[in-house]
Nucleic acid binder design. Structure first.
Length: 889
RNA sequence: GGGGCUGUAGCUCAAUUGGGAGAGCGCCUCCCUUGCACGGAGGAGGUCAGGGGUUCGAAUCCCCUCAGCUCCA
């Protein structure tokens, strides 16, 4: 049985048992900031279990792609994977243990045809009910083992929430794969037993004080690892020998010219390469891009690990994209997002791998330096802080450092390195804890109001209208439900019916007012609870309001129209980007506000000026064509079949709203936002900026409608005023500025030339002004205003002409006195230091300064005492010659 | 989210306690030569990432912002 068949048979089996099959959700969890990546099939079911959302049915089944980073370092042995597929059936308050167990057994025996005698069962210590169920389906008592919390109790995630005992099916691969110890049984560390299916019986809700309260309607949540199951079904010792990995392994062995199954270390490297390559392909397909934090960093880490182990196989050039390509062709039937994003997967992988090779190269020179230094000091061991610095700051793996060191007869202090690593982890954890506490605090504040907020009747009618009559269902003030509130209070209001759009999909919420006969509330923002209830935030400005009041809800229509213009423009922009740059362009986020919008999209190359102007032109052309904008509700599957563009991180219900522009549609997007009726209403579109905001990610900021008009107006006003200033007309401004810049440049050169001419003349006259003091030739003179550099040039000339002298020049430049002192080398040797002299001189004029012994500069504050300062030079030198001179060696 | 490092000519990088912005490669012009990274002379090219502060004076010290690299979560 192939893995594809297992997947198919599983889903159709549970479909027969009344389950609704739901598609795999993205690896990026939707609206769940607590999770980096989707780690189990349960993730997308969680809101149903928590009662936050209505499930499409009480019985659900899925095959979910999952990604776990917890045992990334164990990848390569027989069991652990980062990316895997999890088959699962779920009961949302419907069936329980008995059905879950009997169906699981039926499936593995009848459908997967696994030999019963190779299967072992584990149950939670006191879960006699589960034990009995297993006995009933015919599992002998001696193959049902009891384990404690560690192995057979699931949850809660965090300190409270749903949890319960679980029961697992283990497959015995056979004694030959085991450790051989007599006590070897399921959950043994050796590779003999493989846990293939975990059935979780969520029957308790754990409170923060540790009490477990039975749930009125317990849930079932199961997870069967497809890869492990395939290994069992196909009689292979590990998932790597199944049809899932073999094609990929074949590709690697082809490229590396190494055989699989000949050498333990080589096998491990091959496994890591293929395993991580799958992860790379799937992560990129779901919109993750390499980065130095979050999900992007997970991607970068596995990519680098794969590249390193590839090196070990002798693969020196970039090769990973070959394996990700093989992954795409192996898996795209089931996961079409792979084929859709294949260009992105290929290019990102190549670019990132090349970048890593670059990092390794610079690291290599640093390692060489470190080795040289260590050897020159006669040490044999590379200092661990330095090895850690190479890794921490420059990303150079310690194993590689060790390897290179070994070739040169050196060792590294591995224990010290691990210590440094521990410290770093502790630092991060400590701050992480604080961040979580902080987060918990803020969420708690609103969670009590909105987290589990359930409202039976609430209708959004803002697509059709901008005002309506409704009734106040709930009033929340500072996290407390209240029945009435009066003037001056900040409130959150929930209506049974509202035209207010709650912030979602990048579009900001509406503002406006809610008024009754007795009072009025100014609504300043509108948001949405996790359970999709629209919450109006505002302040009571008149009278008072109470729950049950009949009210009129009216949004700020002009503002809404501004937002709608911008939102429809994002769709047109995405269309234009795909036309001009290519179909690989996808929206990666947006922010739609009344004043303008931001649009992030995936694209690898830089966008040229001419492309930008083409894009802007195309959007404006479509605006002028005044195309109709229509929305409709369609079943999810239909929308998918029609290839409506969906935002990767969004999750959509059974029916989805599709927004189409034009007839036939040139843009079709799944979207819940508010739009204009036809593109002409947008009026005008101007791109304000385009920039790369990370690898493969770009951001465009743009404005439409009246903001665009204002921008155009402002630009033209600016241009006109510049033209006026330049005494010309706007069309001539460009040429005129060019001329002016040239003129300015030559004027600068000319004035520099004049200054030099002047300084040369002065220099000659200055030479005749030299004096003597204590046998030392010196010159102290005031010169006309000169720039610092010309003053210095003057000093240089004087110094070379006078051969042996102390020179002090002073000038007033921009009202500030400044001094320059120069001393010829022979006098420096005799103890005349320019920096000492300048300090004394400048002090007279209330300034200070410093420099080097041959040349020093200073500034003063009192320009009137400049001459007095210059006069002091003679006495300074005289003093120096009369006192005994310390000779320098 | 928290650390570390970096940002100077088109590229790779220098610049001692704060005191004169440089080298190599590349580019342009000329000369000498014509096989290899020829050789020689001259030249252009810089908001020292950006902003603020300290100072007579900041590439250098302090603060903020931005960008890149890197590690941890």
């Amino acid at each position: 049985m192939t893995s594809d068949e297992i997947r198919e048979v599983f889903l159709s089996f549970f479909e027969q048992k009344g389950h609704r099959v739901i598609p795999s959700s993205s690896l990026i969890p939707h609206r769940d900031t607590s999770l980096l990546l989707t780690t189990a099939g349960m993730v997308q079911i969680k809101p149903y279990f928590l009662g936050l959302q209505k499930p499409p049915g009480p019985r659900l089944a899925s095959c979910q792609k999952c990604f776990r980073t917890t045992d990334i370092d164990s990848v390569g042995n027989s069991k652990h994977l980062t990316l895997f597929e999890m088959l699962g059936n779920f009961s949302v308050g419907d069936y329980f243990k008995e059905e879950a167990i009997s169906w699981a057994w039926e499936f593995v025996i009848e459908y997967l045809k696994l030999p019963g005698e190779r299967l072992w069962i584990s149950v939670y210590l006191d879960d006699d009910a589960a034990f009995a169920c297993w006995r009933q389906v015919g599992v002998p008592a001696e193959r049902i083992l009891r384990f404690g919390e560690e192995d057979n109790f699931w949850g809660p995630t965090g300190d409270s929430g749903p949890c319960g005992p679980c029961s697992e099916i283990h497959y015995d691969h056979g004694e030959e794969f085991g450790c051989g110890r007599p006590e070897c049984k399921p959950n043994c560390e050796c590779g003999r037993f493989s846990e293939i299916w975990n059935l979780v019986f969520t029957q308790y809700n754990q409170t923060t004080d540790g009490k477990r309260i039975p749930l009125p309607k317990p849930n079932i949540n199961t997870g069967m690892g497809l890869e492990r199951t395939a290994a069992a079904v196909q009689g292979k010792p590990s998932c790597y020998e199944t049809d899932i990995f073999l094609p990929l392994i074949e590709r690697v062995t082809q490229l590396a010219g190494k055989g699989y199954g000949e050498d333990k270390d080589i096998d491990r490297a091959i496994r890591i390469v293929v395993e991580h390559s799958r992860g790379i392909a799937f992560l990129i397909a779901d919109g993750v891009l390499p980065s130095n934090e979050g999900r992007g960093y997970v991607l970068r880490r596995i990519l680098r690990r794969a590249s390193l182990f590839g090196k070990r196989l002798g693969l020196d050039r970039p090769f990973l994209s070959e394996i990700t390509t093989a992954t795409v062709s192996r898996m795209n039937q089931v996961y079409p997002e792979l084929i859709v994003n294949r260009a992105m997967i290929d290019q990102i992988t190549k670019a990132e791998e090349e970048k890593f090779i670059g990092t390794l190269e610079t690291g290599l020179t640093l390692v060489e330096e470190l080795i040289e230094e260590t050897m020159s000091q006669g040490e044999r061991s590379l200092p661990s802080e330095q090895v850690f610095r190479l890794y921490d700051t420059h990303g150079f793996p310690a194993e590689l450092t060790a390897e290179i060191a070994r070739e040169r007869g050196l060792v590294i202090d591995l224990a010290g390195f691990e210590g440094e690593m521990k410290k770093q982890q502790e630092r991060a954890r400590a701050t992480q804890k604080k961040a979580i506490q902080y987060l918990a605090g803020t969420i708690k504040g609103t969670a009590s109001v909105t987290g589990n907020l359930k409202v039976d009747r609430m209708e959004f009618i803002g697509y059709e209208t901008t005002a309506c009559r409704g009734e106040i269902v709930k009033i929340i003030v500072e996290e407390q439900d209240v029945t009435s509130v009066s003037k001056g209070s900040e409130v959150n209001i929930i209506l049974n019916k509202t035209p207010f759009y709650g912030e979602m999909g990048g579009q900001v919420g509406d503002t406006g007012k809610i008024s009754s006969q007795r009072g009025e509330v100014a609504i300043t923002s509108t948001t949405r609870s996790p359970s999709d209830v629209i919450i109006h935030h505002g302040k009571v400005v008149k009278g008072s309001i109470s729950t049950g009041d009949e009210v009129e809800a009216k949004i700020d229509v002009d503002r809404r129209l501004d937002i709608a213009r911008n939102h429809t423009a994002t769709h047109l922009l995405q269309y234009a980007l795909r036309e001009i740059l290519g179909v690989h362009v996808y929206q990666r986020g947006s922010s739609v506000e009344p004043a303008g919008f931001r649009f992030d999209f995936s694209h690898l190359a830089t966008v040229s000026e001419s492309q930008l102007s083409e894009i802007q032109g195309l959007v404006n052309e479509k605006i002028r064509q005044n195309l109709p904008v229509k929305s409709k509700l369609v079943p999810y599957d239909q929308a998918k079949a029609e290839e409506a563009i969906a935002l990767f991180e969004e999750k959509y219900g059974e029916t989805v709203r599709v927004v189409e522009i034009g007839e036939p549609a040139l843009s079709t997007e799944l979207c819940g936002g508010t739009h204009v009726k036809s593109t002409g209403e947008i009026g005008f579109f101007i791109m304000m900026s385009e920039a790369s905001i990370g690898t493969g990610l770009h951001r465009i900021e743009a404005v439409t409608g009246r903001t665009a008009e204002a921008v155009a107006e402002r630009n033209s006003a600016t241009l006109k005023s510049i033209a006026r200033e330049l005494k010309t007309v706007p069309d001539e401004v460009h040429g005129k500025v060019g001329v002016l810049v040239n003129e300015l440049e030559s004027a600068h050169k000319h004035s520099l030339w004049l200054e030099r001419e002047l300084s040369r003349k002065i220099t000659e006259s200055l030479i005749s002004q030299v004096k003597q003091a204590g046998g030392i030739t010196f010159l102290s003179a005031r010169v006309p205003p000169l720039t610092k550099s010309v003053l210095r040039e003057m000093g240089d000339i004087l110094r070379s002409k006078l051969k042996s002298a102390v020179i002090v020049l002073a000038t007033v430049y921009n009202d500030n006195p400044s001094f320059l002192a120069m001393v010829t080398p022979d006098l420096v040797a005799r103890g005349f230091y320019a920096n000492d002299i300048i300090k004394k001189v400048a002090k007279v004029a209330g300034g200070s300064g410093g420099g080097k012994s041959e040349m020093a500069q200073a500034g003063g504050k009192d320009a009137t005492r400049l001459d007095e300062a210059l006069d002091s030079v003679e006495s300074i030198i005289a003093e120096k010659t009369s006192s005994p001179v310390k000779k320098e060696d």
